[in-house]
Design a protein around this nucleic acid. Structure first.
Length: 421
RNA sequence: GCCCCCAUCGACUAGCGGUCCAGGUCACGGCCCUUUCAAGGCCGUAGCGCGGGUUCGAAUCCCGCUGGGGGCACCA
């Protein structure tokens, strides 16, 4: 029987990367096994609910390509059913009233055990299980009551969630047993931490899916990277497409120890995906990203710049600093230009009448200039680069000059000379 | 405090008793290429937390310790 899994975030904010990791593993498992992946919003705690969160969560999942089966369900919609079940437990003597709330009677001897999908045998002493509240005095069911009931109602066969839920599992097992409901299998994924081994937070870098999107990461790269956190295919395969991941993902290769989120490796992987893109696709993705950032740069020029940047930057967020000189004024650091050097003036002269104004002839002209001045290429080109692009780090100089155009180039050479004088 | 989970290079991991004086990837260092920056090529540094067992043999199994994390709500 194909498994039915679910991802059940609470709508309290943007989708945290740790939660998406859990969502991803559920999704991968479901798709690999030909099962279903459901999305449920656990909104029992209305006081903490953030209005836009439900939409944001769905948008983030869609962006990453994690599609869900069926309609999105909301925990709150099943309040009534939960209350009925609680009444039943009350009637059967398995629960009792306490200051308006309904509490579950928990055993205080023995142990509750289950075979964790990824950790194996786990034991929990029953004496540590307290009589938890099922339904609050105001009538709202608590998470630990509503969640297992919904898993039951939805026919969830496998509950794959974060390891912080391990202490909840014995409680939920007892509830399901009291209810006479079948038990799903449980699997607890290890947490993901920041470089200091603490919970991944803003100070470490991006944390929500939206943050990563805003940084200009490609969803395929983030997807691949996340899959490798706590799971591996073999001893050497790193880059895998979505389809390969679906085909290869199995729970027996999921690890149980926590992982640290390595932004440097993500950057590398993103670069791998970025470079592998067809330049048209790269351009479209870049343009989309720029627009999302509220940047309305000339689309044709952006497209034309792709060959100069695609191999050089790891993620789109680097684009404005790297290629921004094509789209606006530039303020070169005077300290980087030697006012007494004839290079800028010579370059101006060499480029003034050059035909055609294209990378190759530009290169020939500037190399000739370096020869004449008896300068090493790097020493001759650096001041020109700074004058034209405003920085000592830029795309290829000759291609940059071609794209910038003669007029702009000459203007910038003149301006730099004046500033350095 | 109590309970639970985890433990291989700086990071992600392979390893499921001998084929491991531990392999791959990122990062890092060196060299090559080179107009800067990347990319690419080659080489390299670096790890089984500690102590007991079990076994002919342990990174692999067991126990303890230490360390890290999580949980102990009418939050989810």
């Amino acid at each position: 029987m194909p498994p039915v899994v679910r991802f059940a975030p609470s709508p309290t904010g943007r989708l945290h990367i740790g939660n998406v990791h859990t969502a991803l593993f559920n999704w991968l498992f479901a798709r690999h096994e030909g099962g279903e992946f459901r999305l449920r919003i656990e909104n029992t705690d209305t006081s903490r609910e953030v209005a836009e969160a439900t939409g944001q969560i769905q948008e983030s999942l869609r962006w990453l390509g994690l599609d869900w089966d069926g309609e999105v369900t909301f925990q709150l919609d099943r309040m009534e059913r939960c209350r009925e079940e609680a009444e039943r437990l009350l009637a059967e003597g398995k629960a009792y009233e306490d200051e308006g709330a309904i509490r579950m009677r928990m055993p205080d001897e023995g142990v509750t055990v289950w075979d964790d999908l990824i950790r194996g045998h786990i034991e929990y002493p029953n004496e540590k299980l307290e009589d938890l509240v099922l339904v609050r005095a105001d009538g709202r069911p608590t998470y630990n009551f509503a969640s297992p009931i919904e898993d039951w109602l939805d026919g969830i066969t496998d509950v794959l969630r974060g390891e912080d839920h391990i202490p909840n599992t014995p409680k939920q097992i007892r509830i399901l047993e009291a209810l006479g409901a079948p038990l799903p299998r449980y699997g607890h994924l290890a947490n993901i931490f920041g470089a200091d081994g603490k919970k991944l937070a803003k100070r470490h870098g991006s944390v929500s899916v939206e943050d990563f999107r805003a940084e200009g990461y490609l969803p395929e790269a983030l997807f691949n990277f996340l899959a490798l956190l706590g799971w591996s295919y073999d001893d050497k395969t790193t880059v895998m497409s979505r389809d390969e991941l679906v085909e290869r993902f199995t729970l027996d290769r999921v690890g149980s120890s926590p992982a640290i989120f390595d932004y440097a490796k993500l950057d590398w992987l993103n670069g791998v995906y970025a470079r592998a893109l067809d330049s048209d696709d790269y351009a479209s993705a870049l343009l989309t990203w720029l627009r999302e950032q509220g940047n309305e740069w000339d689309a044709e020029l952006v497209r034309a710049s792709v060959p100069l940047v695609q191999e050089k930057i790891a993620k789109f967020a680097e684009y404005p600093a790297f290629a921004g000189f094509l789209f606006g004024e530039v303020e070169p650091d005077r300290g980087l230009i030697d006012g007494s050097s004839p290079v800028l003036e010579e370059a101006e002269r060499a480029l003034a009448e050059l035909e055609p104004f294209e990378a190759e002839p530009i290169e020939d002209a500037l190399r000739g200039l370096a020869d004449r001045l008896e300068l090493k290429p790097r020493d001759a080109f650096q001041p020109i680069r700074v004058a034209v692009t405003g920085s000592r780090v830029s795309p290829g100089l000759f291609e940059s000059i071609e794209l910038l155009g003669r007029e702009q180039t000459l203007d910038r050479l003149r301006a730099a000379r004046a500033a350095a004088a």
